[in-house]
């Protein structure tokens, strides 16, 4: 196993004998090195964190995967958007499964992120030195809500249209700049082609990129602030 070929791909040398070898598996891997090499046993008990952060993260991964697949059959234009959504339900093989998975994962993510925040709050896990990670978490929650909101318009049915009308009019009540923000958000005075494209770009590119960067920062801070103990 421990051939030149193996070693050219995996940095860890075989065979694994000592605890140092075991820790190096984690340490030397891009995907794994975000984990600590050692954790306290109580810190990985279910009742300690209820795994809510990780559940939220895996829901986000599921949303990215299903979302990218849905993008292959979706055009952000009027009336294509609504027709594409209906085609996904009734024409595309397994399209309804993907769409429902995306929808349910989105709903669940809002719930798990919220429960995660409750857990952190009631266990006082936001206290020093983790204050700033709480702040990052608040932004992650806001991004989750914004992703939900922007995704809501994309089917472009009656429910979408009026929910976004109401949301955009709430923005209008922001003092001084409210009307300008609404104009920029909608790309006009009312919901139209530009709005759909804007929400599509926000939903599929800008917000997920912000989310991914902040998730990276959030996880890095967990380790740097002392991990779970």
């Amino acid at each position: 196993m421990d051939s030149q070929f193996w070693r050219s791909i995996f940095r860890t040398r075989l065979p694994i004998k000592t605890n140092l070898d075991r820790s190096l598996i984690i340490f030397n891997s891009l995907a794994m090195h975000i984990h600590p090499v050692k954790v306290r046993e109580r810190a990985i008990r279910f009742s300690y964190t209820f795994y809510l952060g990780m559940i939220s993260f895996f829901l986000f991964v599921a949303l990215v995967v299903t979302g990218v697949l849905l993008m292959l059959y979706y055009q952000p234009a009027i009336p294509n958007a609504y027709n594409n959504m209906k085609d996904l339900q009734y024409v595309v093989s397994n399209g309804i499964f993907l769409r429902n998975m995306h929808r349910w994962a989105a709903h669940l993510m809002v719930i798990t992120v919220f429960l995660h925040m409750l857990r952190v709050f009631y266990k006082g896990a936001y206290q020093r030195p983790r204050e700033f990670n709480w702040v990052i978490g608040v932004f992650l929650f806001l991004l989750t809500l914004l992703l939900s909101y922007t995704g809501y318009l994309l089917p472009y049915d009656q429910l979408s249209y009026w929910a976004v009308t109401v949301g955009a009019n709430i923005v209008k009540y922001v003092p001084v700049v409210g009307k300008s923000i609404r104009f920029l958000l909608l790309g006009g005075n009312e919901i139209g082609e530009y709005t759909l494209v804007r929400f599509y770009v926000l939903h599929c590119v800008i917000l997920p990129l912000m989310m991914t960067s902040l998730i990276g920062l959030h996880f890095w801070r967990i380790r740097k602030d002392g991990g779970l103990y």
Binding site: L184, G188, N189, G192
Partner: peptide, 11 residues
């Protein structure tokens, strides 16, 4: 910001 505000609206 200027780029983001559309100049022609099909309204």
């Amino acid at each position: 910001l200027d780029f983001l505000s559309p100049k022609v609206l099909l309204e």
